[in-house]
């Protein structure tokens, strides 16, 4: 990954899913400019929807705080390059 190593800040995901999240983020950064947070978030969210079922949410940026409810085992917050990434599944199923 050209962007360097991602740093997980908080998560309750399985290790395998964590790796997938960070790989997806890295791939998105290869495809889109670092300022295009929406496209980056869209790329990751769609990947997770297609692989793990619908209902995923993704937030990408350099300045945000948030509060949310997530399903068990579906939450990760990590930093990569200059951005922070939040991925979680909002529905329980």
């Amino acid at each position: 990954m050209l962007e360097g190593k991602a740093m997980v800040k908080e998560t309750d995901m399985s290790t395998k899913m964590q790796i997938h999240a960070m790989a997806s983020a890295s791939q998105a950064l290869d495809l889109y400019d670092v300022y295009d947070c929406i496209s980056i978030a869209a790329h990751i969210k769609k990947e997770f929807d297609s692989v793990y079922g619908n209902g995923w949410q993704c937030v990408v940026g350099s300045n945000f705080g948030c509060y949310f409810t997530h399903s068990s085992g579906t939450f990760i917050y990590f930093a990569l390059a200059t951005l922070n990434f939040l991925i979680f599944k909002g529905t329980s199923s």
Binding site: D36, C37, I38, S39, I40, A41, A42, I44, K45, K46, D49, N54, G55, W56, Q57, C58, V59, V60, G61, S62, N63, F64, G65, C66, Y67, F68, T69, L86, G90, T91
Partner: peptide, 27 residues
């Protein structure tokens, strides 16, 4: 504050993101 107020008043589950620089993609 917003998430809890809306969860309480309009039922779960609400999510809230606040900041000066972020992008998102949600359902």
């Amino acid at each position: 504050t917003l998430k809890k107020e809306f969860d309480t008043s309009y039922g779960p589950a609400w999510h809230c993101i606040v900041g000066t620089s972020f992008g998102s993609y949600v359902t």
